[in-house]
């Protein structure tokens, strides 16, 4: 090292941030703040100067092979090398999923430092796990979950598996919109990938943990079941739905996210939940819940009628 030359702590931290920050020079974006970091990249709030709106820029880590290979300015960015980068793949997947519950992608490409990026809608709101711990009513939780399952079912209908569903990847916006984020591990169902074990422990289906090549929608069903369990809802019906969604053998789970969604909807409207074998008492109780208002009215009418009849008998006995 050069004699007498040394870096102080403040300079070191400044240089670390300087080197790590995506190079957006000459692009339409201006970095505002670091929002979060994941396994393969970081997410920044940025300003799209052309359209004058805030966006989320997801940028590949410098250390990822595709980025590191392209990061040497002596050789210049090499788009061909980053074309296959997972962030770009994620953007390509998102581009085919136009749905109000799936975060839309605006742009993707390569930054001047050679790193792949994807530009997405910047969602202002809270993550589902934050909301749950902040105290959300039971019906709100179920309503949010139902919309998540619906979005995932839509993705499945387009042949896309998410494969990293968890509360931290669900964002609830300021106006109640529910968005499924982070499609970085998503893959097309009809394109099996052998030997890839990726996902989040605790939410990964057993076959995903085993890096099975033929993952299908039931892997996401398992994760949805775990998400539902994390919402800390009570009741035998919810427990039965969770149990069915998270069975070890995928043949025993719901066949699709839509089936799971239907069962949750059935519970919300006091219909029969398919995951639960119902005895006469349970059926009666559900009947009571479903027609609670009508039963109250009938009961009130009957009570009133009895009262009236008693009063009438009393009057008649008094007259006689």
């Amino acid at each position: 090292m050069n004699r007498g030359f040394s870096l102080g702590d403040r300079t070191l931290d400044h240089l670390r941030a300087l080197v790590d920050a995506p190079d957006v020079e000459g692009t339409r974006y201006e970095l505002i703040e670091l929002v979060g970091r994941g396994g393969m990249g970081s997410v920044w709030r940025a300003r799209d100067r052309l359209l004058e709106r805030d966006v989320a820029l997801k940028v590949l880590n410098l250390a990822e092979p595709e980025a590191a290979a392209a990061a040497d300015p002596a050789q210049g960015p090499r788009p061909a090398e980053v074309r296959g980068a997972r962030i770009v793949q994620e953007a390509q997947v998102l581009a085919r999923l136009e749905h109000p519950g799936i975060v839309p992608v605006h742009d993707a490409g390569v930054l001047p430092d050679g790193r792949a990026f994807a530009c997405m809608k910047f969602v202002r709101g809270k993550r589902l796990d934050e909301l749950v711990s902040a105290g959300l009513s039971e019906s709100e939780r179920l309503s949010i979950f139902s919309r998540i399952a619906e979005s995932v079912a839509f993705a499945h209908s387009r042949g896309v598996l998410h494969l990293d569903l968890k509360p931290a990847n669900i964002m609830v916006g300021e106006f109640g919109e529910v968005l499924v984020l982070d499609w970085g591990l998503a893959r097309l169902e009809h394109r099996p990938q052998k030997g890839v074990r990726a996902g989040t422990l605790g939410f990964m289906a057993p076959e995903q943990e085993r890096a099975a090549a033929d993952l299908d929608a039931r892997a996401d069903v398992f994760a949805l079941g775990r998400v539902l369990a994390s919402l800390e809802l009570g009741g035998r019906e919810i427990a039965a739905i969770v149990a069915r969604a998270t069975r070890e053998r995928r043949e025993e789970r719901y066949g699709s996210a839509m089936e799971l969604h239907s069962d949750v909807q059935a519970f919300l409207s006091n219909e029969r939940v398919r995951a639960l074998r119902e005895g006469p008492a349970a059926r009666l109780a559900r009947f009571g819940r479903k027609y609670r208002a009508a039963l109250w009215l009938v009961g009130a009418y009957a009570l009133m009628r009895v009262g009236f009849e008693l009063f009438r008998l009393w009057r008649e006995s008094g007259n006689s």
Binding site: A17, L18, V19, D20, E33, L34, N61, L62, A63, A68
Partner: peptide, 14 residues
């Protein structure tokens, strides 16, 4: 290399 790069570059607020 990737693990070390994450350790060096990650976690610094800009």
């Amino acid at each position: 290399f990737r693990a070390e790069a994450r350790a060096i570059l990650g976690g610094v607020e800009p």
